[in-house]
Design a protein around this nucleic acid. Structure first.
Length: 111
DNA sequence: CGGTTGACCAAGT
DNA sequence: GACTTGGCCAACC
């Protein structure tokens, strides 16, 4: 068996990687929640999703972790300053008022 | 392999 | 409406 015909290592994506991949499908100007991400992955690991975002090693162009908010419509956390997250969202057309997403349900992206 | 840690969630006080 | 509690689940040590 040559290496070309050899099937490459399965390289199972970690839960984190799955989160990143899924999140990368969220279009600009829209947002999603930790809950929706988890559910879209077929699990209830809301917290694990948050952890994944915290450790996110990818640039925001690939994995826009700032587009992830709480399911209540609150801003949620951020690895950097919260004001930065707000600024980025504003830059993409998502208004934030007092730590709350304006028109949250309308901006929400569904998978 | 058991315990710890979260950018969470929902319900209760 | 702020605060506490229990639950949930993957990554890390």
């Amino acid at each position: 068996m040559s290496t070309t015909t050899m099937k490459t290592a399965p390289a199972p994506l970690t839960f984190n990687e799955q989160c990143y991949k899924l999140l990368s499908t969220v279009p600009k100007g829209k947002i999603t929640t930790y809950k929706y991400l988890a559910e879209a992955l077929g699990t209830k690991a809301y917290r694990a999703v948050g952890n994944a975002m915290n450790k996110n090693p990818y640039p925001r162009d690939l994995v826009p972790c700032h587009r992830v908010v709480n399911s209540d419509g609150r801003l949620g956390g951020y690895a950097g300053k919260t004001s930065e997250k707000i600024a980025r969202l504003h830059d993409e057309g998502v208004e934030v008022f007092d730590g709350l997403i304006v028109d949250f349900k309308n901006k929400l992206h569904t998978f």
